[in-house]
Design a binder for these strands. Structure first.
Length: 448
RNA sequence: CGGAGCGUAGCGCAGCCUGGUAGCGCACUUGCUUCGGGAGCAAGGGGUCGGAGGUUCGAAUCCUCUCGCUCCGACCA
């Protein structure tokens, strides 16, 4: 993409309403634009990041055996009356009345919709297990939205729903998502830690929040430090097999958020020098809730003996739009964002330091064509801005590699490669610079 | 919803106390000079001062109401 044709409204100053660094940088880098409290437009750079994150989520959901659907944003209140949640949900639910005076709502979640789909379409235990997910915009009318897209009212969420014949089978479904989540976040360059979460009225040990550590995290978390560097399950993990070993590895050590924290147990179970107390951002939440919706909504299948069995359900959320901010919280420096390759809006920033100079243009155009031919996603700064501004913008938007071409280098057949994360700059021959960038990108596209 | 604060040009701000018809920096346009880490000079464009009432000869400024946004708290992917 040529920057001259792109839409990248970067800001030099930090808008005063932005409190945390990810919000500041997303505004400054031209990723988002606020439309109303907690509601944002996504500008081109932001859309690309959102798409990258969603693609990774999608791949890992598919790998784990979940199947994608797409459910509506606007739901009928009648469904929610069936589950009993229409009255229970409170003011967080945005209620809408259509022209026929029917009660509608902007979905804050989709248990009711998916349960209705399931009960209407599935009759036999032979069709189980099933796990259906969608990546869709949700709306929760938070009392106080804040921190940009981290706590917006409108947000993009992946939500999956599993249906099983028995509680034991549901446990396996839970573990499949558990493993998928470990992989999902690791692929984005994040170290996520599953932490015991409140299971509500169901009880048991089947609810975890996936937390990434960040100073600006909303909740205080406590865990064993080994979990920070825990082994991420491999890509060839057999999701049809027994995952209880992996699950046990990750859940045997202490990890809890503030509201589930047991200080006495923490001190008893974790050696003093292994105790981690930090701030965390919740990027995923999974839980098993049994027959909470399937019972009132009649999601039953016939078992082998011909008897109707109420299905056991679980649901599994990933905050896709929140992740874009969370990744920035974990990957930035004084100059701007530092994207991990797998979620970077572009993989390389090609900088023409003297647009309009025939020789420099020729060299830069050539590199641009070669990068594209190599399948690299490149943002080509072909504008006639001054060098300093170009460097500042590139650092701000945080593309993993900068390939810098100027008249001095062109004269001797050289270009400069800058690694955004390390800051290291190397002057190489054109071909070597090109190879360095291509190798760097391709080797980091898949982290686990 | 309770507490606090802020709305003046795209962004950051001054002016308000002590009313007199709007200003600074960046950004933007044009020209010249610069040109490898946010250049210099010159000339420009852009704002019904969030909105509505009121006081006054006169309101960005004073009063009342209202809307929006932000921060702290309770709530949450």
């Amino acid at each position: 993409m040529r920057l001259s044709r792109y839409f990248l409204p970067v800001l030099r100053d930090t808008p005063k309403e932005a409190e945390i660094v990810s919000h500041q940088l997303m505004l400054r880098a031209g990723m988002i634009k606020q439309s109303a409290a907690g509601i944002y437009s996504w500008l081109p750079l932001g859309v690309r990041v959102l798409d990258k994150i969603a693609a990774i989520v999608r791949e890992e959901q598919n790998r784990a055996g979940a199947v994608e659907v797409l459910m509506p944003t606007i739901q009928s209140a009648d469904l929610w009356r069936e589950s009993g949640r229409y009255e229970a949900y409170g003011k967080e639910m945005l209620r809408i009345v259509d022209r026929h005076d029917r009660d509608m709502l902007f979905g804050p979640t989709a248990e009711e919709v998916i349960t209705a789909i399931f009960r209407d379409c599935v009759r036999s235990y032979k069709d189980l297990p099933k796990n259906l997910y969608n990546i869709q915009w949700k709306f929760r009318d938070e009392i106080r939205p804040r921190f940009g897209v981290m706590r917006g009212r409108e947000f993009l969420m992946k939500d999956a729903y599993s249906f099983d014949l028995t509680a034991d089978a549901a446990r396996q479904a839970y573990q499949r998502m558990f493993v998928a989540y470990l992989r999902t976040f690791a692929r984005m360059g994040l170290k996520s830690i599953p932490m015991k979460a409140d299971t509500g009225p169901i009880g048991g040990d089947l609810s975890h929040e996936f937390i990434i550590l960040a100073e600006t995290g909303e909740s205080q978390v406590f865990c064993h430090k080994d979990l920070i560097e825990g082994a991420v399950p491999a890509a060839d993990t057999n999701f049809d097999g027994d995952l209880s070993g992996i699950f046990a590895d990750w859940t045997s050590k202490y990890a809890a958020t503030e509201d589930m924290h047991d200080a006495a147990k923490f001190e008893a179970d974790v050696p003093k020098d292994s105790r981690v107390s930090a701030r965390g951002i919740e990027v995923g939440h999974i839980f098993y809730f049994g027959t909470k919706y399937s019972e009132p909504m009649g999601a039953r299948v016939q078992g082998p003996d011909g008897q109707l069995v109420t299905t056991h359900m679980g649901s599994y959320g990933v905050g896709v739009s929140r992740l874009s901010a969370a990744i920035i919280e974990a990957n930035h420096d004084a100059n701007g964002i530092v994207w991990p390759v797998p979620v970077a809006p572009f993989e390389v920033g090609l900088v023409n330091l003297k647009a309009g100079d025939a020789e420099t243009d020729k060299a830069a155009n050539d590199l641009y064509a070669k990068l594209q031919a190599a399948g690299i996603e490149v943002l080509y700064d072909d504008t006639d801005e001054r060098a300093g501004g170009k460097f500042a913008t590139m650092d701000l938007i945080g593309l993993p590699y900068q390939l810098i071409v100027g008249p001095k280098g062109v004269k001797v057949g050289e270009a400069e490669v800058k690694d955004r994360r390390s800051g290291a700059r190397d002057t190489l021959s054109m071909d070597a610079a090109l190879a360095r960038v291509i190798d760097g990108v391709t080797s980091q596209r898949v982290l686990v």
